[in-house]
């Protein structure tokens, strides 16, 4: 089994309306050290034994999980040993 953690974020060049709203809110709570907030998505996928995990995950990200016009993705693969 594999546990895959996928992170999808808006590209650096793309303004993030949700992020700016949260930043303003943090500022109004006096957390003035906050310079920027970017909001993204975190997904956990559990995969059964499969070959080419990397290739398959990349494909899933490009096809569905991220829209690469505006989003970047990264992922971590963790092998889970069965009991």
């Amino acid at each position: 089994m594999y546990k895959v953690k996928v992170y999808v974020t808006l590209k650096e060049s793309v303004l993030d309306p949700q992020g700016s709203a949260v930043k303003n809110s943090l500022h109004s709570l006096s957390y003035n050290e906050v310079e920027d907030v970017r909001i993204g998505k975190y997904m956990e996928l559990t995969l059964n034994e499969t070959a080419n995990v990397d290739e398959r995950i990349k494909e899933m990200c490009e096809k569905l999980l991220a829209n690469t016009v505006i989003e970047d993705y990264t992922y971590e693969v963790e092998e889970v040993v069965g009991q």
Partner: peptide
Amino acid sequence: EAGLLPGAMKRNKNL
């Protein structure tokens, strides 16, 4: 999303 037109949609600026 289908790539029949270019670009993408984001949340409205005022959310």
